[in-house]
Simulated assay, not measured.
Amino acid sequence: MKISLSADAATPLRDALGTEHLRASGEVRIVSLVPSLTELVCDLGLADSLVGRTGFCVHPRPVLKTIPKVGGTKDVRMDAVRALAPTHLIVNIDENRRETVEELAAFVPYVIVTHPCAPADNLDLYRLFGGVFDCADRAARLAADLGAALAEAQAVAQGLPSEDVLYLIWREPWMSVARDTYISATLAAVGWDTLPAAAGRRYPEIDWQAPWMAGVARVFLSSEPYRFRERHLAEVAALSGRPAVMIDGEMTSWYGSRAAAGLRYLTALRRELAGGA
């Protein structure tokens, strides 16, 4: 994939592919194909430079109402992106197709590839965006807030016994997350280790009779991508024989500027459930 950035700044920064990026110059026109990073772009004060987003980019809602949609994260409309004449494209290794990014890179000058795998990886993400888009002060404030949230999460993880959990993302078939996902790493930050411990796929199907189910302390039903509802709690509790709890999927899976809020949400939930045990 030929992805590069030429600009006139002094300090090079590297994205997830190791590509060096310098500070952008001239007019900046950003198309983001990653919902959580669209939110980050806005929180860094770059909303006026955001010219395109996916239909899944929904936060912050008031700001994005006027930003054109270019399709989904996987089914991008090339003609729509081309018409917006972006200078910068923001993509993610897990959320966007390689072939799509390669096709877009043929006419978008600068492509920034991201791949945060754990909450702490957002620190490098902030530095990258802060350097490229000349908003280092805002990025530094986000980094400081995340550092504090990471410390809070570590404190609750150290103060409570670790717990093995099952995190459901889909129904029919029932599906969970492997430990190499951002979701699993975020849960682990507060002392919740996801099961199965080993999986052949990042989002494995669940066998309710599998031997490892015996180690599950509780089951989480995520609000996304499958929209689990309260009515599913009894069904899952019956299938698993374990307590079932609803959980906000955006707080566990969205990186970028939501990472600190996500950790604090999980820290509070960990304390709440421990207190009710």
Rank of each mutant, 00 (worst) to 15 (best):
L273Q: 06
G262M: 09
G191F: 01
G45K: 13
H59W: 10
L50H: 01
R82Y: 08
G72L: 07
G276D: 14
V91I: 12
P12I: 02
P173C: 00
E235I: 14
A151D: 12
A136Y: 07
W174Q: 01
E103M: 12
A189F: 01
N122I: 09
Y182I: 10
N92G: 11
C57I: 10
S253K: 01
G276C: 15
T11S: 11
A237N: 05
V156M: 12
D48L: 12
M1V: 13
H21Y: 06
L37G: 10
A197P: 06
A238F: 15
G55I: 13
R264I: 10
A210N: 03
V113K: 09
D79Y: 07
L89E: 03
V165N: 04
F133D: 02
R53P: 15
A149Q: 06
T114A: 12
E39S: 10
R258F: 04
G256E: 08
V34E: 05
P243R: 03
V132C: 05
A140K: 04
G215I: 03
R218Y: 02
R29M: 10
T186D: 05
L150S: 06
V216G: 01
W192P: 01
T252F: 05
L104D: 02
D207E: 13
D164P: 09
R171G: 02
G276Y: 15
E103N: 13
A155M: 11
V81S: 09
E272I: 04
W174E: 00
L22N: 04
A244S: 11
D48C: 09
G130A: 05
M213Y: 01
V58A: 11
H59Q: 12
A120H: 09
F133G: 03
V41S: 03
M175S: 10
A148H: 04
T114L: 14
L50D: 00
R77F: 15
D79F: 06
G275R: 15
L195R: 11
Y226C: 04
C117T: 12
R97I: 13
A143T: 01
I67V: 15
S257C: 10
C57P: 11
L273T: 04
L195P: 09
P109W: 03
R171F: 11
L168R: 02
W208I: 03
L150Y: 02
V81C: 11
L195H: 07
S36E: 05
G191R: 03
A157T: 06
W208V: 05
V219N: 00
N96G: 10
A143F: 02
V28T: 08
D248I: 00
T54S: 13
L187V: 07
W208P: 03
L37Q: 15
R264N: 11
A143M: 05
A139W: 08
T267A: 12
G241Q: 03
A274L: 02
A139F: 10
E172F: 14
A277K: 13
L168H: 01
G45C: 14
S176D: 00
P204S: 04
T19L: 11
T19C: 14
R23N: 04
D94H: 09
V177T: 09
G249L: 09
R14I: 14
I30Y: 04
T100S: 15
I183E: 10
H88T: 07
T100L: 10
E172T: 15
R264W: 11
A214E: 11
R29F: 08
P196E: 06
V236Y: 12
E235Y: 14
A198V: 13
